[in-house]
Design a protein around this nucleic acid. Structure first.
Lengths: 340, 340
DNA sequence: CGCGCTATAGCAAACGATTGCCAAAAATCG
DNA sequence: CGATTTTTGGCAATCGTTTGCTATAGCGCG
């Protein structure tokens, strides 16, 4: 920076002001300084600035568990959308995995308390807490995405899981279905609770009871969607009084489920209608093409970033906001009326 | 840190030594210091340390173009594997997108020259270069993954694209196929060149000429795999003297291609065999299940990280290494002998 | 010409660690 | 117990910025 100042014939403090706070310096000198910086190939040191200012421009996204094999289809879209929004404001995205071990928790806490990151977007309901250090109550800006954690005090950006599934189920009922199979995510998980709730609500409204729906799954994480679908298919094979429609909580589940039941000779949608959640692009190219509930991932990412950057610091007062962005049911071949 | 020193009853310099260089301090005092740090919930400031040391512990991955909708299936696995490897050594992963605009190039250069990141893993053949600042010749540690850029001086971790496709094609020939359709990635792209080269080599070895293979695609990026497959299907419909086997350069292409041709009444593998590249988990659950060439993403990620961290600084001398990790052909239903 | 304003210079103190130095203290050993 | 080695203490410089302060320079304006 001293070199730039010398070359531009101005003082160091002026260079600093020109770069950090362009408003407070005359346009002409600013031009001189920019030219000098460019000529010297100067880039301000981010760590020195961060140290002085007391904040970084890095946001981390905390992903639950490992994204391993068969990761939930929407994660890449989530990353993409968040990253794009962040970059517009000159911020950067760092990835953090929250596994169920102390090492990863400690790692995340270090990132937060060590000042490396300025805030976090969380996709996990559990927050790291080790040795008395806790992310939750550190005044550290956090926004929850996909999961509604507004009750826990975190601004949340979610989609209308319950409603969307309710509508999809209602559509199945309208088509004439009366017996359902629900393929569940992990027991107690927010999405699972909401989505199953949606199913039951739709049944209610149609004068049916929860008896009309059987459950499969519940023991595995969303990351194992394909396995869950396979299990569900074998559960299905054992059912008497077979359901005529299936509601899966992720596209992966639906895809492997469909694949398995087709092998047993059933055809979709003639014997069985299927609808699932996520809106993965691949659903369009399955046979039959799969109806799915498309999550507005882009908008959610944008909203989460906007809230996080806007809210830096001013949390704590008043209840946390909850931003809901509606999902959209995409109707495809996998849904039709029951045979008889 | 001063507080920790006071509480532990030692000097600040001792605390620093205990935390940064545990070897040079007695086990007993170290325990005292750790206890004090824990009690106070102390986390060393990463930016201050980074500033003083002159390096950060952040590695960035530079992704080509946007990962947008229908992203190449393996990117999440790549991120996951790299992140896992990094974390073991106390490093962190930052995501950088290299779009074809100056803004994103400048952004990446700022990250590198501003000292925010310590090195980069690139998945893109083009490197940012703006205003005379260039990533390529900055002594900045870079490792290329998926693309072989060892000729350009970057250590590269790749799979044996050419060989793997050659073997897959040879297998198709062995099954009796003599006319092929090749669904291409973007013209001139490393993967496309290699993979197509593999096809031609296999033909050669079987005494066939390149006449035996038609090409489709070539105008779109891998991100648009589904579209490419759709196009390829319509190209296929127009072909006379139809190929009996299809080699696609990504799973996405194969999936949408299969979906489209099935709708025209063809059945796979009876009328047409299909094999593709990537090894996406979803291939197992397509109907028919798709043969695919599985990339060893995990091993490649680990290797890339190891090289990057090991090689910090010591580039430049000698030719860049090229690490090849073999892909594996997974045989599934989509490959069979031709009908007649 | 003097007044008020804005823009810049120059100085110095931070930000929170690391590290070299030397001396003092403690531990180890024969 | 004396000699030697290992550990600490205390000090101060340093990393590259930002920012508050005062003083000066320049400019427009009545």
């Amino acid at each position: 920076m001293a070199d730039v100042a010398r070359l531009a014939g101005v003082a160091i403090s002026t260079v600093s002001r020109a770069l950090a706070n362009p408003g407070r310096v005359n346009a002409k000198t600013r031009a001189k300084i920019d030219a000098a910086a460019k000529q010297l190939g100067y880039t301000p040191n981010a760590m020195a600035r961060g140290l002085r200012i007391g904040k970084s421009n890095i946001i981390m996204i905390i992903l639950p568990g490992s994204l391993h094999y068969g990761a939930s289809q929407i994660i890449p879209q989530v990353l993409q959308s968040i990253n794009r929004s962040l970059i517009q404001g000159g911020h950067n995205l760092m990835i953090a995995n929250l596994d169920r071990d102390e090492v990863s928790e400690r790692h995340i806490l270090d990132l937060a308390f060590g000042g490396t990151v300025r805030g976090a977007i969380i996709l996990s309901s559990k927050l790291p807490e080790v040795d008395g250090r806790s992310l939750a109550n550190a005044g550290f800006p956090i926004v929850s995405m996909l999961l509604d954690m507004s009750d826990a005090g975190f601004p949340s950006v979610v989609t209308n899981d319950r409603e969307a599934v309710r509508d999809a189920t209602a559509e199945l009922i309208r088509l004439g279905h009366r017996r359902f199979l629900y393929i569940a995510g992990p027991e107690g998980n927010y999405h699972d609770v909401e989505r199953y709730g949606g199913v039951v609500e739709a049944l209610d409204q149609a004068g049916l009871t929860a008896e009309a729906v059987r459950r499969s799954g519940g023991n595995l994480d969303y990351q194992h969607g394909f396995e869950i679908g396979v299990q569900a298919a074998s559960d299905f094979a054992r059912l008497t009084d077979k359901p005529t429609a299936v509601i899966a909580t992720s596209d992966d589940m639906a895809i492997s489920f469909v694949s398995c039941v087709q092998r047993t000779g059933l055809s979709i949608p003639e014997d069985l209608s299927v609808v699932s959640f996520d809106g993965s692009p691949v659903c369009e190219f399955c046979s039959p093409s799969l109806s799915t509930i498309e999550q507005p991932v882009d908008e959610m990412g944008q909203a989460a970033v906007a809230i996080l950057l806007g809210a830096t610091g001013q949390m704590e007062n008043g209840p946390a906001t909850r931003t809901v962005i509606r999902s959209k049911l995409i109707l495809r071949e996998s849904m039709a009326g029951p045979k008889s």
